[in-house]
Simulated scan of single mutants.
Amino acid sequence: MLPTVSRGRPPSTYRHNSLFPQYLRRIIKWQQMDIEYTFWQMLHLCTSPKVVYQHTKYHKQTKNQWARDDPAFVVICSFLLAVAASAYCAAYDKGMAHAGFTVISVVVVHFLLIGFLLATCCWFLTNNYLREETSSNSHAVEQHVEWLYAFDVHCNSFFPLFVALYVIQYFLSPLLLAHGFVPVLLSNLLFTVALSYYHYLNFLGYDVLPFLDKTTFFLYPIGFIIILSPFLVLAGFNPTRHVLNFYFG
């Protein structure tokens, strides 16, 4: 008997291919965005991220896709980034043109473009090297990581990093920019925690997928960061000072 496709339900490949255009269309329809749920996710990503990924499992069960179909998280995160970048420009920048360029570059380059690149790398890595091998005699459906889900994982991981390195650092910047050992220590500690937590959330995002194996790979950068941090402190490297000098020096 030849395989058939139900008329009432589109094939999986078509459904996933049509998800991205639908996702983009919803960006301009803010009435369809679940703002309250997005803020709930943002809060729990900072306090109990496993709860967020437990809801990701529910999303898969109800909508048969791992990725969010609501762009509210990206839109709100971009808006908050623009506000934070504007605050830095108001405090440290002297020109309106450069301030505008800085705000745009933070949102478009730091968040979106780098996010696209990181998501693509993780998407390629997980699908080609971390998927569990299925037997040729197995009747299980072969599953793949959706690119949009990889971007979701990046966005989830980025938000606590944003809180640490854009919000908390802003209010602590008078202390962190001072000279001496304590500012260097605190600045490195802040960056170490923020970057380590980013990679930990990356791990949680892929570990929740039942068809992936050896997802502890995503925890390896944390070890490198922790080992490198004391050397940066001893060398007197202040990441806060270097980042702000890069933008406003």
Score class of each variant (00 low, 15 high):
residue 19 L to I: 06
residue 19 L to Y: 07
residue 21 P to Q: 09
residue 24 L to W: 03
residue 25 R to I: 09
residue 28 I to V: 15
residue 30 W to G: 00
residue 30 W to R: 03
residue 30 W to L: 08
residue 31 Q to C: 15
residue 34 D to A: 10
residue 35 I to P: 08
residue 36 E to Y: 15
residue 37 Y to P: 03
residue 39 F to G: 06
residue 41 Q to I: 10
residue 43 L to P: 03
residue 46 C to Y: 04
residue 48 S to G: 04
residue 48 S to H: 09
residue 49 P to H: 00
residue 49 P to V: 02
residue 52 V to H: 03
residue 52 V to N: 05
residue 52 V to E: 01
residue 54 Q to H: 15
residue 55 H to L: 13
residue 57 K to N: 08
residue 58 Y to D: 13
residue 62 T to N: 09
residue 66 W to V: 01
residue 67 A to T: 04
residue 70 D to Y: 11
residue 72 A to L: 12
residue 74 V to R: 04
residue 75 V to H: 00
residue 75 V to T: 08
residue 75 V to F: 00
residue 76 I to F: 10
residue 79 F to I: 12
residue 83 V to Y: 08
residue 83 V to I: 14
residue 84 A to P: 08
residue 89 C to S: 03
residue 90 A to R: 04
residue 90 A to F: 08
residue 91 A to V: 09
residue 92 Y to Q: 07
residue 93 D to P: 03
residue 95 G to C: 08
residue 97 A to Q: 11
residue 98 H to Y: 05
residue 99 A to V: 06
residue 99 A to R: 02
residue 103 V to T: 01
residue 104 I to R: 03
residue 105 S to N: 14
residue 105 S to W: 11
residue 105 S to Y: 12
residue 106 V to Y: 07
residue 107 V to C: 05
residue 107 V to T: 10
residue 109 V to P: 02
residue 110 H to E: 14
residue 111 F to D: 01
residue 112 L to G: 00
residue 114 I to D: 01
residue 114 I to V: 03
residue 114 I to M: 02
residue 117 L to E: 03
residue 118 L to G: 00
residue 119 A to P: 03
residue 119 A to G: 02
residue 120 T to P: 08
residue 121 C to F: 12
residue 125 L to D: 03
residue 130 L to A: 00
residue 132 E to V: 14
residue 135 S to M: 03
residue 137 N to A: 15
residue 137 N to G: 13
residue 140 A to S: 15
residue 142 E to R: 08
residue 142 E to D: 09
residue 143 Q to P: 04
residue 143 Q to Y: 02
residue 145 V to Q: 06
residue 145 V to K: 01
